[in-house]
């Protein structure tokens, strides 16, 4: 039963990632694209966690945690750059 739920989860998250990709390519403003990248990072974190359940190994949690930090830092750096034209002043 968990297998079927995981298959559904992989399908739904892949669809969500495709929607985010559409947002990145088709939106006009740069901040819309930054928001799409941020949402994409969140979707990828959930995908990594579900993959860890699928493989029955806790190795992937570290990858998910590092990806969460990376996504946060990249979003803040992008916003800071758009706002001020520089990241560390």
């Amino acid at each position: 039963m968990i297998g079927y739920a995981l298959t559904f989860g992989f399908g739904a998250i892949s669809l969500a990632l495709l929607m985010n990709l559409w947002c990145i390519f088709r939106r006009a403003g740069v901040l819309d694209r930054v928001l799409a990248v941020d949402t994409m990072v969140i979707n990828v974190i959930a995908l990594i966690i579900l993959y860890g359940i699928n493989e029955s190994t806790p190795v992937y949690f570290e990858a998910a945690l590092i990806f969460a930090m990376f996504g946060f830092v990249s979003t803040v750096a992008y916003c800071k750059f758009v706002l001020r034209g520089d990241i560390i002043e």
């Binding site: 039963m1 968990i2 079927y4 739920a5 995981l6 559904f8 989860g9 399908g11 739904a12 998250i13 669809l15 969500a16 990632l17 929607m19 985010n20 559409w22 947002c23 403003g29 901040l31 819309d32 928001l35 799409a36 949402t39 969140i42 979707n43 959930a46 579900l50 359940i53």
Partner: peptide, 26 residues
């Protein structure tokens, strides 16, 4: 329980990305 949690979380992720397409401004 685990299956229901996985399905609900996948649905919410899908709804979040769909809402980002549907909403009118940033």
């Amino acid at each position: 329980l685990v299956s229901v949690l996985i399905v609900v979380s996948a649905l919410f992720l899908l709804v979040g990305s769909w809402g980002m397409i549907r909403m009118p401004d940033l």
